[in-house]
Design a binder for these strands. Structure first.
Lengths: 342, 342
DNA sequence: GTTAACTATGTAATCGATTACACGAAAGTA
DNA sequence: TACTTTCGTGTAATCGATTACATAGTTAAC
């Protein structure tokens, strides 16, 4: 049953005041060594545990940080969270997880809830980019709570971000397809109001231009990140007058769907059609027809986000620091785009 | 800059006391409607947000629950966490994530840290089963904090658990291999001091016995859950006088490693050798040679764990409720064990 | 018209820890 | 001896919200 032990209980037992106990536990130099010793021993024997809530209330710091992601059960986000947790654990921070399920309303709710819970910082990958909900972001900034975007970022003054160079990711992937001799390269994009998708698209476009390949709107399809969406995209693309001979997909899942559909249609990969994805989800490597994909170093992204947070926390008295960290994308070339070495 | 607004600020503005404000905000029936109205409006106009920390300190409830998993970046655990978060979100609970990395010391630390943080409950998958650290678990129970195990459970009085029927999972998988005509079935197990691995092993053994196949210790290998471990296991097994013609692996990753090694040795799957895994990780389905695996319904497991927590929270005055929920495993039969229909 | 009952609000304690300030005792200084 | 430091600890306010108890004002009851 063990009632909760407080510093008052220790004080009473030793016939001293709670103030002395508190100071002794905090190793305050003004306290006599013998007293400290006594308090420490008594605390241990009574199985005393500091109440972090009381401390949090007094200090205004909860030692919790909030992480908001679209969903946790994707390898990418789970890995980022892993990185964040690992980096923050030694500093005594706990990580609170929130999911938006790509729902802007949930994103807002999560932001408010985390602020209510007095988190010391918020690390997130944005779901929504409409300006409607900017109030939720402003609310965070007004409370002087460090806000850091990772992966899916958004331009807001005073907000740091950790992203990869998506433009480059799109560029090198497209370039690789071109190197394989592909002439008609399609692109599966996500919601273009999100910078990551826009930048990957722009990288794709630039690579085409730089290599003398004409860009065509018809080859660009906006879709969700799902296997189904990848299949649908193929169905649409193959109806075109000049069907493409390669796809650069912003999603590994859509890339997988594309491959499945192409196979059903007995189209040889990579000989007749190359497919490249994005995110380097584990399955892309494990498949027999392994999928070329761009690695976004999620673990490193998480760690870096946490480090940026640590730099900013507690420095709210000075002018807001705005830091933009951009990690390098790494293209993993695999069978789905390897005509030459396969 | 927006200083934090408290009920005292509202009180001062309206020339009433904080008590009245608090009551008005909580819709206390003793407060005049006109006063309530006024307080609510003022609170809104001043952008008042309740300080949950103060509330938590006063009430002794933090509205946080802790989740401890070996690691978050595996599809299984991420999915469980997703289920937990989804179930608890409507009830106003926040989820705090901790990882043990299979390190018993970290597990203990996490337990103590969560208790220090005054969480209202702990949901976890155990890493360690030695009795050394039982003190950490006892500490949780003594504080009357509901403790619920999911997947990897441990016998402790007063602790509920949500697991799948691992025995059955092992049994039906082995049975399926037998049905395919396999005669010498090996088993890759995990740390047998963990019940899940022990039970899967026992299910495997029973299936052999029930079908007149002799059990041999030589066919059982303890290994980690990794691709490498699966390769190593194959190397050992194929050295045996009578090498096996099938493997039931407690890990999808080890199953994958086994498949890769078998392929390198030009052994045909499933014709010459069948392989089945456990967990139904996404890649098992996506591979061209899809892997038979046991689904553990992680999402449902998470939701169920959360529900058990909700049932128990706040009922600490009565006798401890100990609930054991056992979900049914579901075997997904795929190409790696389908001799007949492939 | 006096008392009882009810309404709406104020007063002050509480949750558990920290900390500015106060103060008595011991030690040092002149 | 008288005066200043220093040391070690106590007193009480504080963080922000809740709530048992007290109380002033109003209405009802007989």
């Amino acid at each position: 049953m063990s009632e909760k032990i407080t510093i008052y209980d220790i004080a009473k037992k030793l016939n001293i005041t709670a103030a002395t106990v508190s100071r002794a536990l905090n190793n305050n130099p003004k306290i006599k060594d013998s007293t400290k010793q006594l308090v420490l021993e008594t605390a241990a024997s009574m199985n005393y545990k500091q109440n972090k809530l009381a401390l949090a209330l007094k200090s205004g710091r909860s030692n919790n940080i909030g992480v908001i992601v679209p969903r946790i059960d994707s390898n990418f986000f789970a890995s980022v969270i892993r990185g964040i947790e690992e980096e923050l654990y030694p500093h005594g921070y706990q990580v609170i997880i929130c999911q938006t399920h790509e729902n802007p309303k949930r994103e807002n709710e999560n932001l408010y809830t985390l602020i209510d819970a007095q988190v010391d910082g918020i690390l997130m990958s944005v779901t929504d980019v409409t300006n409607e909900n900017d109030s939720a972001f402003r609310n965070v900034l007004e409370k002087n709570v460090p806000l850091i975007f990772f992966d899916r970022s958004k331009h807001i003054d005073g907000v740091s971000s950790v992203t990869i160079n998506d433009f480059k990711g799109g560029y090198i992937t497209t370039k690789q397809l071109i190197n394989q001799g592909c002439k008609y390269i399609a692109h599966l994009s996500g919601d273009q109001s999100l910078e990551i998708f826009k930048n990957r698209f722009l990288g794709y476009k630039q690579a085409l231009l730089d290599n003398g390949i004409e860009f065509s709107e018809k080859y660009v399809i906006q879709s969700k990140s799902s296997v189904e969406a990848g299949k649908n995209a193929i169905n649409i693309l193959l109806e075109l007058e000049t069907p493409p001979d390669a796809i650069f997909s912003s999603s590994d899942f859509a890339a997988l769907g594309a491959i499945q559909e192409l196979r059903d249609r007995k189209i040889n990969i990579p000989q007749e059609f190359c497919v490249a994805g994005f995110s380097n989800e584990p399955f892309t490597k494990f498949m027999e027809l392994s999928i070329t994909s761009v690695d976004q170093s999620p673990l490193e992204m998480g760690r870096m986000s946490a480090r940026v947070f640590l730099e900013q926390v507690g420095k709210t008295d000075t002018i807001k620091i705005e830091k933009k960290v951009v990690l390098a994308p790494e293209l993993h070339i695999r069978k789905s785009t390897s005509r030459i070495n396969s």
